[in-house]
């Protein structure tokens, strides 16, 4: 595998009084301040419309802050987004992927490497090796030559995770990578990301509405509800008072094998583009 992803900067994300507006003028994030250390496996959680996707897009320079600032490995997202994008491999929400182009699975996985090259973006033998290895990690190696649009929802999500694993750069950002995926696919996605993080020390930032499937593999959790509600290790965030405050009075905490899990009525896919 690739060499360790180490950069000199100690902090993965530094947000200071960050506010971001939706296109309709409503505040999506307000006065967000926090710092996370590299290298980490970070989960960004919160209810629907809590600003999780907005935060990730702001880190990538896809959305601009209306006040405050956010830095990724020391680079300011407003001014130095090109430098950040060179470091990032990104999996957008699944409804941002179009299926009417007849791409093979291998073409999608190779995209993770070829997007970082300059035109004409030819795939070298090394690119193909990395892509095959990434597809093996999500246990779909046999689908290498299959048409991507014909896969199931869970298989597509696994292929997109493989696209991120195949690429280079010290940060993986995944926006709800397990939404629409069957249980088996969810398990494989979590295992593949966990294994990859342990091996490569690459930073992984995952937006999810449900912490439970990744509870034991993540190192840090950022809980958002338009502003920072909590940040810390998974079991610190899973606090009864806090989850009731964020998810409403029906939320509660259960303990299993020494870990705390949150049960809420919030499920399904986030409505980010409203």
């Amino acid at each position: 595998m690739e060499g360790k992803h180490l950069t000199n900067h100690p902090h993965l994300i530094e947000a200071e009084s960050l506010s971001v507006k939706y296109p309709n003028g409503e505040l999506a994030l307000e006065d967000v301040t926090f710092t996370t250390d590299a290298s980490t496996f970070l989960a960004i959680i919160g209810p629907n419309g809590s600003g999780k996707t907005t935060l990730v897009k702001t880190m990538l320079g896809l959305l601009k802050p209306c006040s405050g600032s956010i830095k990724v490995l020391g680079y300011d997202a407003k001014r130095e987004y090109n430098a950040i994008r060179r470091l990032v491999r990104y999996v957008p929400q699944r409804d941002h992927i179009q299926h009417n182009v007849p791409m093979k699975v291998k073409d999608i996985v190779l995209m993770g490497r070829l997007l970082k090259k300059s035109p004409p973006r030819f795939a070298s033998d090394k690119d193909v090796d990395y892509a095959r290895d990434a597809l093996r990690r999500v246990d779909l190696e046999e689908l290498w030559n299959q048409p991507f649009p014909e896969l199931s929802g869970g298989q597509r999500q696994r292929v997109l995770v493989a696209r991120a694993l195949a690429g280079e750069g010290p940060i993986l950002m995944l926006d709800e990578p397990m939404s629409g995926a069957d249980h088996d696919s969810q398990v494989r996605i979590v295992d593949a990301l966990h294994e990859y993080h342990e091996e490569s020390q690459a930073n992984i930032i995952m937006v999810t509405h449900d912490l439970n499937p990744i509870h034991i593999v993540v190192k840090d959790v950022l809980m958002l509800n338009r502003t920072v509600m909590g940040i810390g290790h998974p079991c610190e965030i899973m606090d009864t008072e806090l989850v009731k405050q964020v998810y409403g009075p029906t939320a509660y905490i259960v303990e299993l094998d020494g870990h705390k899990y949150c049960i809420t009525h919030d499920s399904g896919i986030d409505d980010h583009d409203r």
């Binding site: 491999r89 990104y90 941002h96």
Partner: peptide, 20 residues
């Protein structure tokens, strides 16, 4: 010259931008 770029933009505009 730009077949791959046009295809990538069609499949995943946001992801293509985020990768630089």
């Amino acid at each position: 010259l730009f077949k791959k770029e046009f295809v990538y933009v069609s499949i995943d505009m946001e992801g293509s931008t985020a990768h630089g």
